[in-house]
Design a protein around this nucleic acid. Structure first.
Length: 784
DNA sequence: GATCCTCGAGTTCA
DNA sequence: CTCGAGGATC
């Protein structure tokens, strides 16, 4: 066999590469690994470099992009790129179908339906099977010549496959950026300080309009064909669905979601089907498109101005909108966290009118570089909470400056500070700041804390603003008269007509109800009480752990912080925060006040026997986080000294004789020098003794059918709330977690379960539906 | 020190 | 729901 000529080898490599592209982008069946593709491409590149005369424009090597063009040339579309009429409701779709049925006098109509991608419409021109020019839609009549950029998109064939194509063929379709690639691209950009794309659509549009095709080549763009323009020297099938099939045969990617459906019912069913699948698709869509399938019908229907009468876009409610940001304001939370949020001109997104959206923190504002007056993109996707995803830089008014975090709290004027290495800025006013006081009372009254029904944000705001309630304990002093007085002063302040007068007599029922609710809340549990105090880092689950492990408020109140680390999932940070809270006399006073005003903790019990495992001197020394005192050193000290007192009394050299190296011994001695540390050690030693006395030896481990199992609840349940289901599962020994991970044993998926269910399926975790859950609960004696 | 998981905190609208 | 960060684990 004679060795192949360079020309033959080049042709072979090109064929292999284009074949791989076709399989990957059109058939969606990758045939060779990426590395192999790269290897072939490099081989071709080398051959072409050695034989420059053999380089052609349609070679796959030319996809990497050439040097920048000055600007885009204009391209006049031989056949205008039309726009589509829109339908936003089922009625509009019915009208559309009726119009066609009336005009064509046909009883039944067949449509081709396809998803409407949220990308950029383009037109591709092929002459004798070779890609020669590509253009953006522009105004429909004239677009921009982006041929070089389009060449870099591997999903666009440079030469047509198969046979029978017209001498001149224009193909229309959508360039888009797949979601996963968009995420990956942004993640990379964030890490390397590059420019973050606002959304896949902007990403696609921006990428195509790069003057330097080498930049476009690096963007993960894809393409779907959905129609044709000019056709000369050949024929296309006479129905839309057959045309799509033909395009696919010639090497164009066509959405696999395209379907032929009959009548209005078929269209609307398709709409719902795609709508349900929307969040799980690999790309963003903003609706679906219906086209009368047969060519005769299309020709007879014709056009209105610049849109065909035989096609319509049925839109989904928009998940993203543009609007103008009027100003960036800040909010002060319970912990003093100062969070910026955007006040925007009202805009309709995802079915509701949005005027405000969180900006999370100062870093986020800087990352997006949003400024007052900017036009911004707001998203309200599957989640409910609106979010500013990006700025439209072209619309930025002149003279704006980057936003800056205020230096003083807008509510109390205290300095706003940021801990080293932290993202959040905080108002340093603590409980002198009315905003923080107010928020902490709202937290205290909330459902998951003390659960004072009817005491919401509004009342707390009034009570706090009028100085009727300053601390949580003040709530338990309130009388009906206080509340009526508050109402009177609020009416006076706002100039509103008092409802009390309108009714002709004094309306007091609401006040009585509220006082009653406050009274009911007096009877509570340790976990709710601890959570309600609003201690930093002590949320629901930490509060619960503390309640379970220590069981007694009075015990917890006097423990020094290192002992809290004996509870699983409580580490240095959380323990210190709790200790710091308890060290403040004001907080202890507040607890006393609450108890004095009748708050009763109903579930007091001795500490868990499991505590004993870590109650020894060595562990205590480790927990104290003394510099250079590791586990090993702590063990040495503990075996050499019988008690904390002995340690406190010992001279430095005794630490050395105990076996400590001199640097450890010195560090420990230096630590003890500090009076506060010595006292902490002494207090901790005493607390340790007390705990050993009150903690039962026996570790009573209740056994349930779900012992040691981690369960995640997702979606809505019909028979009970998720919280109730969680309690029942916990009663059977399960640990109820909030998110699915490898450690999850079981996921209970209710109605409309979302990402968690998907993740569970991905990880192959056992999944139950509500019926299975109910059957299980029934079987184990805790049915609904 | 890196990595995985979980918790805490803040958040919108009707 | 999402982000950031604390805790556990290797």
């Amino acid at each position: 066999m004679t060795p192949p000529t360079p020309a033959a080898r080049i042709a072979d490599l090109r064929r292999q590469l284009e074949d791989a592209n076709y399989r990957y982008h059109v058939l969606d069946e990758p045939s060779i690994p990426d590395a192999e593709y790269d290897r072939l491409l490099r081989a071709l590149d080398e051959l072409e470099a050695a034989h420059p005369d053999l380089v052609t424009a349609d070679s796959p090597t030319q996809r990497v992009g050439n040097a920048p063009a000055g600007k885009f040339a204009e391209v006049r579309h031989a056949i205008p790129m039309l726009s589509l009429g829109n339908a936003f409701s089922d009625e509009e779709v019915q009208d559309f179908v009726r119009r066609i049925a009336d005009k064509l006098k046909r009883p039944s109509l067949r449509f081709s339906a396809e998803p409407k991608l949220d990308g950029l419409a383009i037109s591709l021109r092929y002459e004798n099977g070779a890609f020669v020019q590509g253009a953006t839609r522009g105004d429909g009549a004239t677009g921009e010549d982006v041929t070089l950029n389009l060449r870099t998109i591997k999903a666009i064939p440079l030469t047509l496959r198969g046979t029978g194509w017209p001498a001149v063929l224009e193909v229309r379709g959508e360039v888009y950026m797949p979601r996963a690639d968009f995420e990956k691209y942004n993640e990379h950009a964030r890490k390397h300080g590059g420019k973050v794309l606002a959304n896949p659509r902007n990403g696609a549009a921006g990428s195509l309009r790069q003057l330097d095709p080498r930049i476009t080549a690096q963007r993960p763009l894809a393409f779907f064909a959905y129609g044709t323009g000019l056709v000369e020297g050949g024929e296309l099938p006479d129905s839309h669905s057959a045309t799509l099939k033909q395009l696919r045969g010639w090497g164009f990617p066509v959405s696999s979601l395209s379907e032929v459906v009959d009548g209005v019912d078929g269209l609307l069913a398709y709409y719902r089907r795609i709508g349900d699948a929307r969040d799980g698709l690999a790309f963003d869509i903003d609706g679906v498109v219906y086209k009368l399938d047969d060519g005769d019908g299309q020709r007879e229907m014709g056009f209105v101005s610049r849109a065909p009468r035989w096609a319509i876009a049925h839109k989904f409610p928009a998940q993203e909108q543009m609007t103008v940001l009027e100003s960036i304001e800040v909010n002060v939370g319970r912990t003093g966290a100062v969070t910026p949020w955007a006040l925007m001109q009202p805009v309709h997104v995802g079915g509701v009118t949005v005027t405000r959206a969180t900006l999370h923190n100062a870093d986020q504002v800087a990352r997006l570089d949003v400024r007052n007056g900017d036009t911004v993109i707001v998203r309200r996707a599957g989640d409910v909470i609106p979010e500013v995803v990006g700025v439209v830089p072209e619309r930025r008014p002149a003279g704006t400056v980057p936003w800056q975090m205020p230096t003083q709290c807008p509510v109390c004027g205290s300095e706003i500070v940021r801990e080293e290495g932290e993202a959040v800025w905080r108002c340093s006013g603590e409980l002198t700041c009315p905003a923080q006081r107010k928020e902490s009372i709202i937290h205290f009254a909330s459902r998951r804390a003390m659960d004072i029904e009817g005491l919401g944000e509004r009342f707390v705001e009034d009570l706090s603003d009028l100085d009727i309630v300053q601390h949580v304990a003040d709530l338990y002093r309130l009388t009906v008269d206080d509340l009526l007085e508050m109402k009177r002063r609020v009416d006076e302040r706002d100039g509103t007509t008092p409802e009390t007068v309108k009714a002709g007599k004094v309306a007091t029922k609401w006040a009585e109800n509220l006082i009653e609710a406050i009274d009911r809340s007096r009877q509570t549990t340790l976990e709710r009480f601890l959570f309600g105090l609003g201690i930093q880092h002590v949320g629901e689950s930490t509060a619960k752990a503390l309640a379970v492990w220590f069981g007694d408020l009075q015990l917890i109140r006097r423990l020094p912080w290192p002992l809290f680390k004996r509870v699983p999932d409580i580490g240095g940070e959380v323990a210190r925060s709790l200790g710091h809270f308890l060290d403040q006399p004001g907080n202890q006073q507040a607890i006393d006040d609450l108890l004095a005003r009748g708050v009763v903790i109903g579930d007091t019990h001795p500490p868990s026997g499991k505590l004993r495992a870590g109650l020894d001197l060595a562990t205590l020394l480790v927990d104290l986080e003394i510099p250079k005192v590791t586990r090993v050193r702590a063990e040495q000290l503990a075996s050499a000294f019988p008690s904390v007192q002995a340690l406190l009394d010992a001279p430095v050299h005794n630490f050395v004789t105990a076996g400590l190296p001199s640097d450890s011994a010195n560090a420990f001695a230096a630590w003890l020098e500090d009076e506060a540390n010595a006292q902490l050690l002494s207090r901790s030693g005493a607390a340790l003794e007390t705990l050993l006395e009150v903690t039962p030896e026996d570790v009573a481990t209740a056994t349930g059918p779900l012992d040691g199992k981690t369960v995640v609840l997702t979606g809505g349940l019909a028979a009970m709330s998720r919280d109730e289901a969680g309690e029942k599962l916990e009663a059977l020994g399960a640990k109820v977690a909030g998110s699915v991970s490898k450690k999850t044993h079981l996921v209970v998926a209710g109605e409309a379960a979302g990402s968690k269910l998907a993740k569970a399926q991905e990880l192959g975790i056992e999944i139950w539906d509500e019926a299975q859950l109910l059957a299980f609960l029934e079987k184990h004696g805790s049915g609904a």
